[in-house]
Simulated assay, not measured.
Amino acid sequence: MEKINFVKMHGLGNDFILIDCLKNDLPKPQEFAIHYCNRRFGIGADQLLLLYPSQIADFKMKIFNADGSEVEMCGNGIRCFAKYIWDRGLSNKDVLEVETLAGIIKPKKVGELVQVDMGKPEFHPNKIPVDVEGDSAFDLMLEVSGWHARINCVSMGNPHAVIFLDEEPKNFAVTKYGPLIENHPIFPKRTNVEFAYVKNSSEIVMRVWERGAGETLACGTGACATAVAAMVKEFTNKKVTVHLLGGDLLIEWAADGHVYMTGPAQEVFEGVVKVPQIG
């Protein structure tokens, strides 16, 4: 029975199991994620983060949802990933280059916070992906369980469907409509779903249904996608605070076309699990 060391971390309550695979690979990561992200029978987390060496960047991050599916990027996750690296002296660089399925992402130290260059948003339906004609997937009408949702699709390295509501989403039926939109056939790779309310030109209130994880307390890429959608629609300025259930993220769409996300990352505890035959 193999022993695996792990660290439990979170970014605004969006929580992760992080495993250092610089020297030893983790066998069957999909099965591990399903088993140990379970909050009743495992450690409990939204996602599993794996730290690997990289041939094209400083490090490589692999991400698995609680349902075992592998995903391209996670904004809160990469902040935790960077904090782990800095806290353990694995790099003395203030700006890291991290290889992900969404490309090379660059987290940067900003005092006690971590700022992440999330790259440029993608709006073309083929790149998100969303199965519609044209060059944009904004203002699409989607009927789910009798509700006509107006969705705005953006990729921040992973797919997002942003819905702007007329009031704060505190009492909105996220757990009803989230999975219906996530798994709608218009999204060939499923999608994350954001339910947002523009409070004013510099503040957005948001809840998120994450693909493969369900509702989470925060989503970094989701906050970026929501902010960008609001900026495109001229609801807000180019720099906004996004209020999530777990706390706040500062999102800026800068003149260079890149989206910058700044927020906290925290380590909760370290542990060891004895891994039996799983799967």
Rank of each mutant, 00 (worst) to 15 (best):
E143H: 01
L142A: 01
A137M: 05
P169A: 07
R150I: 10
V144C: 12
L140P: 00
E143D: 15
F172G: 03
P169M: 10
N158K: 07
C153F: 09
D139W: 03
P169V: 09
H148S: 12
I163E: 06
A137Q: 01
F138H: 02
N158E: 05
K170H: 12
E133L: 12
L165W: 13
L140W: 01
N152Y: 01
L140Q: 02
M156D: 04
G134N: 08
E182L: 05
P179N: 09
A137S: 13
E143N: 14
K176V: 13
D135K: 15
L165E: 11
N158L: 03
I163F: 03
E168L: 07
P159L: 08
I151V: 15
E133A: 13
A161C: 13
E133S: 14
P179D: 07
I151H: 13
P169W: 11
S155F: 03
F164E: 10
L165T: 11
N171A: 11
D166W: 07
Y177R: 10
I181P: 00
M156P: 02
D139G: 03
N183W: 08
R150C: 09
N152F: 00
S155K: 09
P159Q: 04
N158T: 11
G178V: 02
E167A: 13
R150Q: 12
F138M: 10
S136H: 14
L140I: 08
I181H: 02
K176S: 05
S136F: 14
H148K: 15
L142I: 11
V144T: 15
S155Q: 05
L180K: 12
A137L: 02
F138I: 02
I181K: 01
N183A: 07
D135Y: 10
V174L: 15
G134P: 06
D139T: 04
P179C: 08
M156Q: 06
Y177Q: 08
W147D: 11
W147C: 09
H148C: 06
S155I: 05
D139Y: 12
N171R: 13
S155R: 08
M141I: 14
H160Y: 07
W147F: 14
G146Y: 02
N183S: 12
K170Q: 10
E133Q: 15
G134L: 09
I163V: 15
A137W: 00
P179Y: 10
M141P: 00
L140V: 01
V132K: 05
E182P: 05
S155Y: 09
E133P: 03
W147H: 14
R150T: 13
G146I: 09
F172Q: 08
F164D: 09
S136L: 14
D139P: 00
D135I: 10
T175C: 07
